[in-house]
Amino acid sequence: MKVAVKRSDSSHGQGLREFQTEIMVLSRIQHRHLVSLVGYCDEGLEMILVYEFMEKGTLRDHLYDRKECLKNPSAETEFTWKQRLEICIGSAKGLHYLHTDPHGGIFHRDVKSTNILLDEHYVAKVADFGLSQSGMPDPDHIRMSMKGSFGYLDPEYFRTLQLTNKSDVYSFGVILLEVLCARPPIVNSKQREEINLAEWGMFWQKEGHLEKIIDPLLVGHINRNSLRKFGGIIEKCLKAQGADRPNMLDVCWDLEYALQLQQTPAHGEAH
């Protein structure tokens, strides 16, 4: 059996909490769209996690580290819109399963494209549960250190310092934009409005011209209705107030519909 091994560097004296959280979460949940834990070692200073091996690496690699990631040049054009939608649907199902865990729900708190891994058949699995949190956070124990990753962080978090399942939904909205545009959440740019992908994407969505910023590989290959639906999902996920965002089940249904639309030829569409 092929496995992936993650070994913590004990010399930094950190990571114990994340290590324990990861084991706790992955020991009690199993789902087709969550990376499974094969075993772990916690002996002396060693903290080792052993996971199922994910052949195709991270979603991010396929979106914009293509030259490094895809040794096979013909594979570059194979990352189709249908495939991308299926990966989004799988990831959404994994997150929905976490959020509806019977023990009070689990918030991932670090949803990003490097934490979505692909197996040999491009089945998406959510990974890295070190920052996860069960149930409602205890307001007395909100630590002031920022959790999560820059570019994916729920803007509401900066006001309330509370991460919820709707924070995961916001981060997932950023991933959806990444999948569509094949660019990182934050880039260096002289155009200020381009720096933050969520703001940039929302600008074009509201203009009704999201197609202007899509991955060049997808141009001419996305059904207009599918793109319109997908843009609408992103807009809902990126709402400023968590209460206005959908839950992950709604996101799953909407993405399934966007996939259906992709497979239905639009009237009068030029291919």
Score class of each variant (00 low, 15 high):
I29K: 01
S149M: 08
E120H: 13
L131F: 10
F158E: 08
V5T: 11
D110C: 12
A127F: 04
K6N: 06
S132N: 10
G242Q: 08
L177W: 02
D250C: 09
L161D: 04
R183Q: 06
P73L: 13
S10C: 09
K93T: 15
A198T: 05
E120D: 12
L180Q: 01
V126C: 04
A92Q: 12
D110N: 15
N225Q: 07
G13H: 09
S226F: 01
H33E: 08
L95Y: 04
P102H: 11
G13P: 05
T164V: 09
A198D: 04
V219H: 08
G130K: 01
Y122R: 10
W204P: 00
I213G: 01
E194H: 05
G220T: 09
A258P: 02
K2W: 07
M24Y: 01
K6H: 09
F203A: 08
R66L: 14
P73Y: 10
C252I: 13
F107Q: 13
D110I: 15
K2H: 13
E269D: 12
Q241N: 11
L95A: 15
G39Y: 07
L45S: 15
D154I: 12
Q260M: 12
L153E: 11
R60H: 09
Q20C: 09
S27R: 04
E207R: 05
D9L: 06
A270I: 08
E55V: 12
R228D: 02
E43A: 03
Q30V: 06
F53Q: 10
G39M: 05
D65G: 05
G15K: 04
G135I: 11
G44K: 11
P184A: 06
D128I: 11
D250L: 10
K82W: 04
N165T: 15
N225R: 05
K147D: 09
D42H: 14
T21G: 02
K206M: 03
T21I: 07
E120C: 12
D168C: 06
H96V: 14
I106M: 00
N225P: 01
T80R: 08
T114I: 15
